[in-house]
């Protein structure tokens, strides 16, 4: 190629780059390998595309449940402590119609997962990708089958001898209490969809005088803290004082080691299962302090239990490992608990 032609080609290239986003394929990125796709492509569709080979029984599911699921979801998937309940609220008649009857009308009870579930693939897919809560994607495919089977058993969709696998899962689909409960006949799926309300932009003397139908009750005035502290202290408005000013000692308490340990416990979900004074799913912090009173050597044991989990010390309910904490945090929590969680 002569120098002149080369220079011409360069000039054309620059000019084209300035006005057009792509001169052809950008040739960036690389082909994904089959192993890479297998490692990440874990979704399972309602038609069971993507469902892996494997099987698991209700009985196997129960063992996994008790070790890894029960502490959040409760023995029967009924717990409302951390998340909305999984099981309950459907009838044998719902299983026949495929439409959970109690969802209709103005007095709908709290909806459980199984009251809404229309595709069994959804349950399998979600357990596989996101459970257990603190160790997502740690279950084998067989274990996912087993836990899925157990959740279905909790809602009487299958019996206690049931084994879930690639074939039986298709039968289960036909028994889901709310399998016919979803609708796509609405205008909110696509930008071009038709709205379901049709307000008119009237400007003068529109309708009757406004009548207040709902307002916040007085007892809820401080439910979101002091609104004065949630607005600027200058400008056209102030926040309304909804809480009496805090005593001056609060600032000192907030920065103390004990206060930061309590924050640590709150931030890491400890207080979901342990109250300072009250037993929730696990013992209260003060019960723990009482048991180890006068045994300063027990701090190591307590730190280990926090990090690695434990069971049998305080009843049936196992405590899951809190391995998202580092050693120093676990140690600080253990010390704070032994000091009486003050």
């Amino acid at each position: 190629m002569s120098r002149l032609v080369k220079r011409g080609a360069l000039a054309i290239g620059l000019a084209a780059a300035a006005v057009s986003p792509l001169l052809g394929a950008p040739n960036l990125g690389r082909p994904a390998t089959p192993a890479e796709i297998a490692a990440w492509d874990i979704d399972v569709r309602p038609d069971f595309k993507g469902l892996p080979a494997g099987s698991g029984s209700v009985m196997q599911g129960q063992d996994i449940w008790e070790a890894q699921c029960e502490s959040c979801h409760g023995t029967f998937g009924e717990s409302n402590e951390w998340f909305t309940p999984l099981a309950g609220g459907t009838t044998a008649a719902d299983q026949k119609t495929g439409h959970v009857k109690s969802l209709a009308g103005p007095d709908v009870p709290q909806r459980t997962t199984l009251m809404k579930l229309s595709t069994v693939s959804t349950l399998f897919d979600y357990i596989r990708r996101a459970m257990p809560w603190t160790a997502p994607k740690s279950l084998s495919d067989d274990e996912v089958y087993a836990v899925t089977a157990y959740v279905l058993y909790l809602n009487d969709v299958v019996d206690d001898a049931f084994v879930l696998d690639q074939d039986t899962i298709r039968e289960v689909q036909g028994r889901l209490p709310n399998r016919n409960g979803m609708s796509r006949k609405h205008g909110l799926w696509l930008a071009s969809g038709k709205p379901d309300t049709a307000n008119k932009a009237c400007m003068r003397n529109c309708g009757d005088e406004a009548n207040v139908t709902s307002s916040l009750p007085d007892y809820a005035r401080d439910a979101h803290g002091n609104l004065a502290d949630q607005n600027r202290t200058f400008g056209p408005v102030r926040g309304v004082q909804t809480v009496a000013p805090a005593p001056a000692t609060d600032a000192a308490t907030a920065s103390s080691p004990a206060a930061s340990a309590l924050l640590l416990a709150q931030d890491n979900g400890c207080t979901g299962c342990h109250g300072v004074d009250e037993q929730i799913l696990g013992p209260s912090f003060r019960e723990v302090a009482k048991r180890y009173e006068g045994k300063p050597e027990s701090i190591g044991k307590l730190t280990r239990t926090i990090l690695q989990g434990g069971s049998g010390n305080w009843g049936e309910m196992p405590m899951p490992a809190q391995d998202h904490l580092d050693d120093a945090q676990a140690d600080a929590l253990a010390q704070w608990i032994l000091d009486g969680a003050q």
Binding site: S118, D125, Y126, M182, S183, L188
Partner: peptide
């Protein structure tokens, strides 16, 4: 794909008991 957040959550319950998916 009928995922968790388009089957169990982010579905709108209508008065007739169906959910808009």
């Amino acid at each position: 794909y009928g995922t968790k957040d388009e089957s169990l959550h982010y579905v709108d319950l209508m008065p007739d008991g169906t959910h808009r998916q």
